[in-house]
Design a protein around this nucleic acid. Structure first.
Lengths: 340, 340
DNA sequence: ATGAAAGCGCTAACAA
DNA sequence: TTGTTAGCGCTTTCAT
């Protein structure tokens, strides 16, 4: 690797002059010298060593991203949003992928081992002089990890610190639950079934709260027979569909697209026409929802926005909303599985 | 940020001693001094500046990854494979995401603007002293970009340099085409329809070649009425299905899962039972294929392996196979859409 | 057991 | 217009 020194030697000037010329300082050298230096740099394929530069400048212009698992479906878009904002602001991003899901499955979350791993990862990032960190969860869960005496801003994205000690950016699950329910009510459904995820899930709780709120606001009696709990997998949608449909619901709101797909299947296997006899809603706007037949109505999570907002807070140390938690609105997509 | 110097001052020793102690050099200091230094480091939350260290050591232990688009479905797993191998070898990875697909769509590929962007990205990585680069395509396409006088190894993953000047790692599309066809033949299909992608696509050409080879090896006449060309979208599968089925094929091999889904839909809409009256195969093993009803038989691309192999070549400057192109075998998954 | 000194590649303040 | 000097934080001889 060619260095400034070498160019200086060949051009017969000092390293300082080369540095100045290469950095475009006006009047750093005579036109001839300037050209000579530039020519040498090109010929020798000179590349600055950004780390030497940063060391000297005392500023890294870099932030760190920690992902729980890059291969879980929502993560890349969040990361993408972070990168997007960074490049707009002239920042670099370093990505640390913990590969949690692949390595440990779901039970690992918020365990001491998990906290330990985060600590190690944070330290690693800190050694690289990052000026802030965004932590990207692979689903919305509570995470009580608090880095001890963190010298840089730290924001959770797509997960949250239940103890509210660190800012988080999430989608507004409650509002989404409300919106879908209100939409179905507006379409004259009075008996709306819900297939939740496990009750322990934050998203389940929030969406369910939104559902109840919408019923209340429209003077519809809440009926707990209409609320059942699945496990986010397609199979549970298939199994729970009859429970709801036999008790007379005219619409089913499943809390993810996979379970909604299960409902669609059950309907078709048993003579109910999705989108005609029964309206079906999913959640997540996964690829499968648009691909399915019929296409499944769903709710899009503002992933890019979550990423952008999180890094925005980190960099601008900006307004962090009430309780340090920011909720971004989701977008409802009506498709054939629910259109009337 | 605490520095070694500061600790040295507080402990009343030299920076060299602190460095040695912190790096675990045996006999660097007396036990008491040692403890004092370690204690101070902990108390002051000391973190090494890895860049200062690297500058001094003259080695970055870092490789660069360039992705065409991180959010396109196959990319994260390839990246994951790269990270996995790196962490095994104690290497760091820097990710540069060009966001091509999101920003420009498909026409951008291999255009001068694209080459310019790659050049810029490579330069960027080089400034960070990477010791090698893996370039990850978002689909298998030719890319004629050759970095001029690259000082570090450069490998294409999931795309290839048609001029064979740089090594590439790909899946073996031809073999996959052969395997699926042979499997169908073995299941007594003699009239096998194919829905390709556009003929300009490398994967299309390869898989089609494999298809023909399998027919040939089993003494089945190739019939070009059985080969049609779609656009990778579900709709084209739906439209082309009748073209094939009405001419009497008993099996349809679509070159991606989306188009296979379209075939399934058409069959169901017209009284053909997928997996019974007609066998349907897709390609890619996307989430949708397993989610569909019936589940779609498909071919899994060894994404993780492609990533691992690519970085392996970069780091070990290892055996780069014939023509510098390495083909990794795919895995066939038989599911309900084709089981007999 | 401990430290002084040199230097990695670069930039910036100040001189000349 | 050009150069000298100093130093970013760290590691590594080589002395002591």
């Amino acid at each position: 690797m060619t260095t400034i020194k070498e160019i200086a030697r060949l051009a017969g000037v000092s390293a300082a002059t080369v540095s100045n010329v290469l950095n475009g300082k006006p009047g750093a050298a005579s036109p001839e010298k300037r050209n000579e230096i530039l020519g040498l740099a090109k010929k020798l394929n000179y590349t600055v060593n950004v780390f030497a530069r940063r060391l000297q400048k005392g500023k890294s212009n870099t932030i760190g991203i920690i992902t729980e698992d890059l291969t879980v479906f929502n993560t890349p878009d969040i990361v993408d949003g972070i990168y997007e904002y960074c490049s707009e602001k002239g920042y670099e991003a370093i990505l640390e992928n913990m590969r949690l899901y692949k390595k440990f499955g779901s039970n690992f979350i918020d365990s001491p081992a998990h906290h330990g791993l985060i600590g190690k990862t944070v330290k690693n990032l800190l050694e690289k002089q990052v000026e802030g960190i965004v932590y990207v969860g692979y689903h919305c869960h509570d995470i009580s990890y608090i880095p001890r005496s963190l010298p840089v801003p730290f924001v959770y994205a797509y997960c949250y610190s239940g103890n509210r000690l660190l800012p988080s950016v999430l989608m507004d699950d409650r509002k989404a639950g409300y919106d879908v329910t209100a939409l179905l009510i507006q379409q004259n459904h009075r008996n709306i079934g819900v297939i939740c995820g496990p009750l322990s899930s934050y998203s389940t709780q929030q969406r369910l709260a939104g559902y109840r709120e919408a019923l209340l606001n429209h003077n519809i009696q809440y009926n707990d027979k209409n609320v059942v709990f699945g496990d986010w997998e397609k199979g549970s949608g298939y199994e729970l569909a009859p429970v709801l449909l036999k008790s007379g619901v005219t619409a089913v709101f499943a809390f993810n697209d996979l379970m909604a797909g299960g409902v669609v299947d059950w309907c078709r296997d048993h003579g109910f026409r999705p989108g005609v006899d029964v309206s079906i809603f999913g959640f997540d706007n996964r690829e499968v929802s648009r691909f399915y037949n019929p296409q499944i109505s769903t709710v899009e999570i503002p992933l890019l926005g979550i990423g952008r907002r999180a890094i925005e807070i980190v960099l601008d140390t900006g307004a962090s909303g009430e309780n340090g938690t920011i909720m971004l609105p989701c977008m409802v997509h009506e498709r054939a599985s629910s259109k009337r």
